[in-house]
Structures are given as C-alpha cells and as structure tokens.
Design a protein around this nucleic acid. Structure first.
Lengths: 349, 349
DNA sequence: CTGAAAGCGCTAACAT
DNA sequence: ATGTTAGCGCTTTCAG
C-alpha cells in the first residue's frame, strides 16, 4: 500500500489538490471550514508531507551539512557536533554529518555529496589550510559556508575560531611563575612521519596558534631549556617521544601538550616510568573534559568555548542562508586558562 | 546565475535530456561517442546532479536517520555515532542526525521529521521501553528500523544490544574474590527525582540488564552488605549520594557505577573527602574510555563492543532497506570485563 | 541508439 | 474561496 499523498488527502476531503495544500500549510485565502475538513481528512488517512517533494519546489531542504574531521573521541568535536545538531534543530534545520578523519580526499568527496543532496549551507572543519579548491566549489554552488576551529586563508567564508594563542602563552607564564625552567612542548600534527624537534609546516591555524602561543611564552620568559617535539597524533609514537623526553639526562619539569591525545600519552608514559604528575613532571593541555577535573590532581587546561562556537556557527550559517549578500565575518572567541593542580610549584633555590 | 541542470547539459551536448541522463548514469543502450560528448559537456558547464530530484523519481534518498539520546559526552554514543556515520558513508549512505537528550517528545518529533525527509531507514536509541507508538509509525511508513543499545518489547524491528548482564555479574565476582564484603551500586536513571535506595521502574533494558547483573553477583556471592542507590544522571545529586555513602558508619569498600558520569561523581567525591581510589574505596564502571586506562591506577571497566555494534547496525539496516521482507533479528553482542587496578585486594582476616 | 512525453509530490501563479 | 495548470530536475517507459 502506497503512502498517502496530498492527492489522496484532496480526494478524501473532496477538494482540489491546491486547496488541500493551502489548508495544510495555512497560506492563501481559505475558509476555516475547509481547513478543518482537509486536516481531518489528512489525519484520517494518515498523511504526512513529503519534504523531498517540497524541497524540490521550494529550492531549499532545511538541511545543513556538517563536515568534521572527528574522531569524535576528541572532546572538542563531539561537543561541537552536539551543539550544532541541537542548535540546528531548534532553528528548524536537520544536520547531515560526514567525517573525514583529516583526510582531504574524503573531505572533497563529502562536500561533493552534501552539495548534491542540496544542503542549504555547510559547516566545515577544514582538514588543511593549504588546499581549498573543493571549498570554493561550495561558493560556486551558491551555498554559504562557515568554517569552525580552523582558518583557511583565501576563502570567502565566515570563520569561527578560538584565541588559543593567548591562553597557551598564559600557561607558560604560569609555569614560569612556579619556577619551571625546563619545559617541553608536545605538539600533535599530521605533517610529520615520526616525532621530530624541528618545527614542520603545520597543517592548520589552530595548531599554529597554540605553538605560537607557547613560543611567545618561552621568549617572554626567557626560558632557556625549551624542547619541542612534533609528533604524529598516534599513541605509540607519542608515548615513545614522551619516554625519550622523560628519561633524558636533563628532563623537563613540565610538558605542555597540544591536545588530549598527547596528554594521555604523557600520563601513560609517566605511569609506566613510575613518575607522578605533578611531583615528577607537570602537565598542561588544551580542551577541557570532565575527567580532567575528576582525577586528583586535576589537569590545568586551556578551555575553549565549544558550545558558544557551535551555536554561533549555526546562527551565522542561517543568516547567510537567509541573506546571500551578507558579508563574511572572522569571529575569534576567547579562551580561558583553568588552573588546577597539575603544575607543581617548584621551590626557588 | 542558476545552477546548471541536466537540461543545460543536454543543450550543450546537442542531445535530448533523456540521452544526457543515460550518458551520465551509464545505463541503457547508448553509443560510446555520445557518452563522451555528454560527459565533456557536463564537465565544461560545471554540472552536478541534483540528488533531491533523483530521490523524488527513485523513491529513495540514500540517507539514513540516526536518532540518538546523546549527550555525546557519553563515550558510548559518540563512538557509536562515528561508527555509524563511517560505515554508512562506506556503503553509499549519508546520515541525518537528531539527538533527543532522553526526551520522548523530542524523540517523537525527530522521528516525524526524519520520516518526512524520506530517509530510507532509521537507527534509533529509544529513550524509553514503555511507549512506542512513534516507533510503530516508522513501520507504518514502510521504513525499516534498527534499535541499538536498548530493547523495546513489542516492536517489529531488528535490535542490537550488548550482554551487560554477564560482565556486570563477573565484576561482582571479582570484587568478592578480592574479599570485598561491603558493596555499593550507583545506578543512573531518569526515572527518579532524587537518589533513592528502592529500585524504581528503570527506563531501559540496558540499565535493567546491568542492575540485574550486579544483583545476581550479589546473590551468588552471598554479599551481605549491598547498598543500592538509584540517582538521576546529574553530577550534583550523584555526588551528594556518593558522599552520603562514603561518610556513613559502615562505608562500602567498593562502588560499582552504571556509567561514566557516575564514576566521575565517585572520583570527584573521593577527592573531596581525601579518599584514595582504590586504597580507601574501589571503583568499577561500564563503558571504556581512553582516560580510564591512562590514569594511575586504571579503572576496571565493563567494555562494550561499540564499533562492532555500529557497523552491524548499519549493515542490518541496509539489508532491511534492500529486502523489505527480511525478518527482524535480536542480536546480542558479548561484553568484556577489563581488570585494571581500581579494585583493591583486601587481606582476608 | 536516441527522442518525446509522462510523472514522482508538491506549491504558486493565474484563473474563475 | 477554490480550481486549473505549470513546473522544480530527474529517470524511464514507449516510440521510432
């Protein structure tokens, strides 16, 4: 048995298809009696509208596409996803999700597919800042896009990012204030094959921002011993790199990590080496998570306003959907250093 | 400037719309030359197919709906979501996501919306087992559904759940083997207003399963002191309940929690009371997460095969989409107790 | 091998 | 206030 269409409703109510449509969508001039009759008929035959057909006519789908690099194991992206889905729903939009695992080819394909499905706009976490022909495709399809978390220079889209620079710098200041003089920085990036000390070209603006924040802190504070490790975001290699740091002759008294995966690597390695955090080695990371505050001591962290970012991303995207000539904006949200107990106060000699 | 349609391609290639369609979709009898010419024309004018129009004709959207209770902060649902999105993509489907925050009204509305958007099938985490008229609606729309994580008696759908009973029971055995005699169980449920000792009607099969597993362990092992606390899934109330347990005259030597939120409440409260895990109180929870293994000691946990569950959910749903007369199945996946260091071995007296 | 024409379900001019 | 008709972009009979 076929699903009832508006034709069936019209027949059941004894009116024309147009009248049925008007009655169901409450538009045009139509008598209250007819509306009631049509609605009753629709109810009785179990009619539900077909949004695909409606989209075809209307030219919009009330659907937005989300292309995210997640790994939802990443606390930032899982919460961002939830925030986006919830805000979209509250605004009458559904969300089609793709994830790319930082793979550009997948990202390209995902955008193509979402565009073919006629999403009204896209929220994208671009996997790289280096290439953006596929992002330009979105504009060529006359669809608005908002990028979150990362900046892509040279594209015409609203971006929402966070000011990681400032809080990362501040974290170094705090370490210095507690007399740390030998610091290590563990940065996750997909642009290296194995851990290395030299700074590679970083794949995105966010990591760049964190590294620059840390570096500035080092310079400001004239920290002499600052070791840098750029590692693939991969537990094995990260843990090896941490072990190497901590078993060196002159080990750092504190490690700053660029994300939670790296922080976990530090914790695992410290445990394995019977080192206590923060007594043997202090730790600071980026992106807050419930467990960082539940363990003892809590881990000091650069917190980013993920809910606000998600909400704004949807809000701005919908503004662009409703007003195609709206100018793109670059929005930078403030971050916050939450001090817990993971930076040891070293006694001055 | 309008987006090019298949009519524009046809005009550019100097053929009819039908021929253009055949050439682009590689079907029917058509000369290789024509195919090449049409594809070249499509390329040159930047044509991309409109899947909405295709769906309208074809009667399918190559889209599945996911209605999930998440809270993506829940490790289980974030990983399930990722698994579902990835598997769907690999099978040629996109995923439209809604989350309900365990709210039945939202769930009802979400299902209605997804159905109107003509998804080809639905994967649902039902917020309650008690009501299912809205789930029946899915079948009445002739769309298949797979429920995951939870069972709803009386509906005609394939379900994929995990055998939490067995591992929860096993966890109690392990505690008993380590000489724990005074055990507490902290169960999160939305069916109570404040923490209580009496077992309420539980809202879903999964929680029921865990409680039954724990209870069976208690009975098998003749544990005399077994305190039960059913709490709303809410940090404040959970922490209060834990504090009450731990400051009682005869406090439990171990707490079993039904999810990570409750485990966090135990950890936070223990810290506040200067109690060490596991020396002062042991802890076991359900659903593994990276950090549970990175802290020292690691937390013993009932691990569920979330990736497998996600993969199977999509696989089974697509089978139902492709074969409407396929019979529903009840699939139960095994769980696994991972022993880490959070259960103290108490010396026998 | 290709073209003409119908129709998926809906809405919106344009009539009446 | 309601009906008639066209058409969104596509695929697929049916003719030729």
């Amino acid at each position: 048995m076929r699903k009832p269409t508006i034709n069936d409703v019209a027949a059941a109510a004894g009116v024309s298809r147009a009248t049925a449509s008007r009655a169901l969508s409450d538009y045009g001039r139509i008598s209250a009696d007819t509306v009631a009759a049509v609605k009753a008929a629709a109810e009785s035959i179990g009619y539900t509208p077909n949004q695909v057909a409606r989209s075809m006519r209307a030219g919009n789908t009330k659907t937005i596409g989300l292309v995210i690099i997640a790994d939802f194991t990443n606390v930032f992206f899982d919460r961002a996803t939830k925030g986006i889905v919830d805000t979209a729903r509250a605004s009458g939009y559904e969300v089609l999700i793709s994830n790319t695992d930082e793979n550009l080819a997948v990202e390209r394909e995902a955008i193509q597919t979402l565009l073919e499905k006629q999403v009204d706009g896209l929220i994208v976490v671009p996997s790289t800042a280096a290439v953006h022909d596929h992002l330009d495709l979105i504009a060529r399809n006359n669809k608005p896009m908002v990028t979150i978390d990362r900046l892509v220079p040279g594209i015409n889209a609203t971006s929402i990012t966070t000011n990681d620079f400032e809080s990362c710098e501040k974290a170094v200041h705090e370490a210095k204030a507690k007399n740390h003089k030998n610091m290590a920085f563990l940065i996750a990036t997909s642009t290296v094959q194995s851990p290395q000390a030299e700074k590679p070209i970083l794949q995105n603006s966010t990591i760049e921002d964190r590294v620059n924040g840390f570096m500035n802190g080092v310079i400001d504070n004239k920290v002499k011993d600052a070791k840098w490790v750029y590692s693939p975001d991969n537990p094995q290699q990260a843990e090896d790199a941490v072990a190497k740091l901590l078993t060196a002759k002159n080990p750092p008294t504190i490690i700053f990590t660029s994300n939670n995966d790296m922080a976990l690597a530090v914790m695992r390695t410290a445990n394995r080496l019977k080192l206590n955090i923060p007594n043997d080695v202090s730790l600071v990371t980026v992106d807050d998570s419930q467990w960082l505050d539940a363990i003892a001591p809590g881990i000091t962290v650069v917190e980013r306003p993920v809910d606000e970012l998600a909400r704004l991303a949807v809000k701005k995207l919908i503004e662009h959907i409703n007003n195609k000539s709206k100018k793109p904006e670059k929005i930078v949200l403030p971050t916050n250093l939450i001090s817990r107990g993971s930076i040891k106060a070293i006694k001055a000699k």
